[in-house]
Design a protein around this nucleic acid. Sequence first.
DNA 1: GTCTATAAGGAGATAGAC
DNA 2: GTCTATCTCCTTATAGAC
Lengths: 188, 188
Amino acid sequence: MKSNNGVRERILETASRLFYQQGFNSTGINQIIAEAGIAIGSLYKHYPSKNDLLYHYLQHQEAVYFSGLDEYLGEVRKPIQKLIKLIDYRIEIQEQSHCFGCHFIKINAETGRHDEKVTQLVAGHKKKQRDYLERIISEIESVQGLPMKKQNLTDAVFLMIEGAVVSASINGNTDDLRTTKKIINQMF
Amino acid sequence: MKSNNGVRERILETASRLFYQQGFNSTGINQIIAEAGIAIGSLYKHYPSKNDLLYHYLQHQEAVYFSGLDEYLGEVRKPIQKLIKLIDYRIEIQEQSHCFGCHFIKINAETGRHDEKVTQLVAGHKKKQRDYLERIISEIESVQGLPMKKQNLTDAVFLMIEGAVVSASINGNTDDLRTTKKIINQMF
DNA sequence: GTCTATAAGGAGATAGAC
DNA sequence: GTCTATCTCCTTATAGAC
């Protein structure tokens, strides 16, 4: 491994993978430095505490999620297709990561709302996801009718997707995400 | 405290409360015995390991949930009212427990699907919840029309409730559960 | 049932040498 | 950047005396 460059990034990527796959509390500092192939001194130089690493993990996932989503929807023109593609994006993410669910829901379940900063990062991410969805539904509204009031439709779709992602992490498949897509298709 | 009677129950109740409030991994054996007011020898006599305690915790919550639900719906006659009351039941549970979410979703998020027995208890609970919901919707169908195909309606309602319970644990309120109730009311 | 002692290991974090 | 040593504390679990 290269020894001087990309150390900070390698720490975060390794920690992110382990936090997601086996949980934050179940992941030890020693495992992170071993799998990242770096020294413990380097870790604490870049991230002064394990909690600090957690904050950067969540911020990183937030950026990765939305930039990936923008790219995934890049070519799509029809608003209704954007909605369908948004669910396809979640399906693809889950299938590429062994259906372990949503990073933010997992951390929230593990740490509760004890840490204010974590609470705000999780709630903020979910708010951004819902706002993103609402913008797509507004676009749909501008070209065709909606099957129910805009706000209710936004909440219904958001909550179904949330439930379906949780279901994916429980059952280890994307069946409910696909069901959600089917239901939405039949609503319009 | 009484020293010889109800020890086993007190262990399980204390462990259940702590597992739910601060998480399974964040709860130590020493804290359980301290808050239950029992000796460590007693704990390991009744529950040979912390994992064994976890299994009993999940089985106990399963029983508590469904017996409480049956009682809560006991007086209700109209099928559509059963559906609304089912959501009221979730609202009441969340508001009485600081909106920490679903016991089973939390454990699943913490332990993933590594432990087969836990995986089965969680997936089994969610299957039972969905089946319970499907029976109510079948009753509704027998007295009035449904706004969509029965299976799709069951999945949609189940997933919205799941998402709304997760949202409760993130935001610390039952807003999305109440929104879910409103959406369902408007669908019929 | 109670108590205390202890094993054996891992946690997060710090310090210093190279 | 690397390495090793160490500190303090906590973890699950067992054993034995009362």
